[in-house]
Amino acid sequence: MSSTNRRVLPGFSLSLGYTMLYLSLLVLIPLAVCFLKAADLSFGEFWTAVWNPRAVAAYKLTFFASLTAAAINVVLGLIVAWTLVRYEFPGRHILDSLVDIPFALPTAVAGIVYAKLYMDEGPLGQFLVPLGIKGAHSVFGIVLVLVFTGFPFVVRTVQPVLEDLDKEVEEASAVLGGNRWQTFYRVIMPVLIPPALTGFTLAFARAIGEYGSVVFISGNKAFETEIAPMLIANRLEENAYAEAAAVAVVLLVFSFALLVVINLLERWSKRHAN
């Protein structure tokens, strides 16, 4: 196919050339510069920049808050996807479009409004105070906004799989004597695991790098509510460019590893679906 295409269809070298040029200028060269800047530091300096108590506290918080938020998103996403696909009720289409709001709403707006809603005197935060939960300027608040920003991922990965689920398979299970719960557990669940896992990883990856929504609700306190992207921004304000680049390299390497995992998962889901 390729050889005939290249003879019949024009523009291969032009389009590939432009793609490579733009990709290099906007993405590859800036990324390389970031790695080079981190390499300005000696190994010892690099190590102190990326592995000091403040940085480790930031990594831990970023990792666990993102993991918790992604896990909550799996539960919420499965409930919402199931309801939107399986049931007919008034308002279904509106709810379905509202699922995408976290993708479209600027994260800073979300972050500020969540902070206002959940601070101790806020309209929702005041109900958390008697329960001993601080809604804003706390890890709870960070997880909350990360749940918001990652909410659409699981819904949108699970939904199409649920829609394509073969009706006959479920009926066969019922005919063969499986009750509703067994059908769900043995027939539906296994199909939903790959897309749910893909959605989980996408939400997790998004949460790791999230900044705009978190910065307002977190309070930005070193060692307590400072996530890794915030640490980079704070280092930059101190004019510690190489140190900022070093932490960025750690974050980049972790994100690239996640990107590989996501690709593998998507390939696995596709094979599973066939």
């Binding site: 800036p30 510069v33 790791i208 790098g209 992207p229 930059l236 460019y241 960025a248 996640l258 990107l259």
Partner: peptide, 26 residues
């Protein structure tokens, strides 16, 4: 590889993205 590279910016934290351009053009 090209397809994967095109997706790359989605997995870069926005703060890191900004930092890269500061390091290049600051």
């Amino acid at each position: 590889i090209l397809i994967t590279l095109i997706d790359l910016p989605f997995s870069v934290s926005p703060v890191v993205a900004g930092l890269m351009f500061v390091l290049l053009f600051g």
